[in-house]
Structure formats: C-alpha cells, structure tokens
C-alpha cells in the first residue's frame, strides 16, 4: 500500500524531478567547465587565487538546493491542498501519520539522492583540477546548503499543508528564519562544528508539516 502512495508522489512530481536533474546536471557541468577553463589558462595563478581568497568553485550552487526543496514541496503538496484533495489521501485505509511520513519521506529521499549524486559527481570532476584540500573545502561548503534545501522543503511543506492563508503567511516568517540558518555567509569549514545541530534542526523540522495536517483534520478555517 505504501508503494502505491509512493507511486502517487512519483506521478505528481516526476516532471519536476527530471527538471531538477537536468538543472543540477547543467549547473554541475557548467562549474566543471569553468574550473577546467581557468585551470588550463593558468593553473598556478588559479590555485593561488583559491588559496589566498578561500575561494570555492561551487559557490554558484548555493541557492540551488533551496529552490529544489521549495519546488518539490510545491509540486507534491499543492495538488493535495487544491480542492482539499488531502481528504482523499487521509481517507486511505492507512495510518495517517505513516501516510504523511511516506509523502515527506519521498520528497526528502528524492532531494538526498539528487544532492548526493550531484555533489559526488561534481567533487569527482573538481578533483581532476584541484587539490584534495580544495575539493574538501567545496564539500564542507556545499553540505549546509544541501541541508538547507531539505529545510526549505520541510518549511514549504509546512506552509503548503496549512489550511488557512493567514497562518501560511505567519508560518513564512519563522520558516524563513529557520532556513536562513543554513545560508549564513561564512568561510569554508565554518559550519563544521554546527553540522550536528543543523541535522537536528532538520529532524525537528520534519514534524512541522504534521502540525499543519492536524489543523487541516480539525477543520480549522
């Protein structure tokens, strides 16, 4: 039965998932080509610039996971709230909490796979031109942004599932503050001590959409 629920999520979001794959692949390829071009122009000057400026090559990807998280939540959950179709989903003969876990789990897993594949491919490509230390600096810079994409997904889910427009707008404020934790400007590696806390924030954020769903169930208007 849960497989069938995953099938529903796939049908709703497959176009967006293909689009995200294409965009991530495109941006990844662009970053690799840009790195290759600068490396081939003057490798020594390029490395020197990176070291002296603590520069990272993947900076242009910063807000891409955020956009991916928001887009996926919208394509998955807006159809559920349109004409209050969530009633149909919650009326399925399944435990309602498990149903919601499955829906959110689909989105989180999709994002995790998308981010992991992109980061792995990008870092493997960068390793051709850069030292391991430079690639690691890229990796630890990308990590909070990717977690931020998941936080954005959960915030957007929290807002989408909220039945009252006024409350949606009110949710937007703490939601934005919460997501901004993941995007505070910092030097590469500055986030490392906080990574466990960022993961804890994601775990806590997983329960926000349950609150909206409970309000929907109680018929809050």
């Amino acid at each position: 039965m849960y497989t069938s629920l995953l099938y529903k999520e796939w049908i709703k979001s497959r176009r967006a998932i293909w689009l995200l794959l294409a965009v991530f692949a495109g941006v990844g390829a662009y970053l690799l080509l840009a790195t290759a071009k600068q490396y081939q122009a003057d490798a020594t000057a390029y490395w020197e610039f990176i070291v002296q400026n603590s520069d990272i090559q993947t900076g242009r990807m910063k807000y891409l996971p955020l956009a991916a998280g928001i887009l996926l939540a919208i394509v998955q959950l807006t159809p559920e709230m349109h004409n209050r179709r969530l009633k149909l989903t919650l009326h399925l003969p399944l435990d309602e909490s498990k149903t919601l876990c499955t829906i959110l789990g689909f989105g989180m897993t999709t994002l995790a796979v998308l981010f992991t594949v992109t980061v792995a491919a990008l870092l493997a490509g960068l390793r051709v031109y850069l030292s391991p230390e430079m690639v690691f600096a890229d990796f630890i810079s990308l990590l909070p942004w990717m977690l931020g994409g998941m936080a954005a997904y959960l915030t957007a889910a929290w807002i989408c599932l909220e039945p009252v427009w006024k409350q949606r707008i009110l949710n937007l404020l703490p939601g934005t503050c919460w997501v901004s934790f993941f995007y505070t400007g910092a030097l590469p590696g500055a986030y490392v001590p906080f990574l466990p806390w960022l993961v804890a924030l994601i775990v806590a954020g997983f329960f926000f959409p349950f609150y909206s769903t409970a309000r929907f169930k109680h018929g809050v208007q």
Binding site: K8, I11, K12, P79, N83, R84, R85, K87, L88, H91, L92, P93, L94, D95
Partner: peptide
C-alpha cells in the same frame, strides 16, 4: 484503517487526484 476501507467517499464536485 479497517473502517476507512469500508467507507467510500465522494467529495463535492467529484474531486479526485486529477494528475492521474
């Protein structure tokens, strides 16, 4: 879930999952 499986629900306006 057992009781839900015994109830057929038709929403106002014949609303269904329109993306299918």
């Amino acid at each position: 879930p057992t009781v839900k499986s015994r109830i057929g629900l038709l929403l106002e306006g014949h609303i269904q999952h329109a993306y299918f």
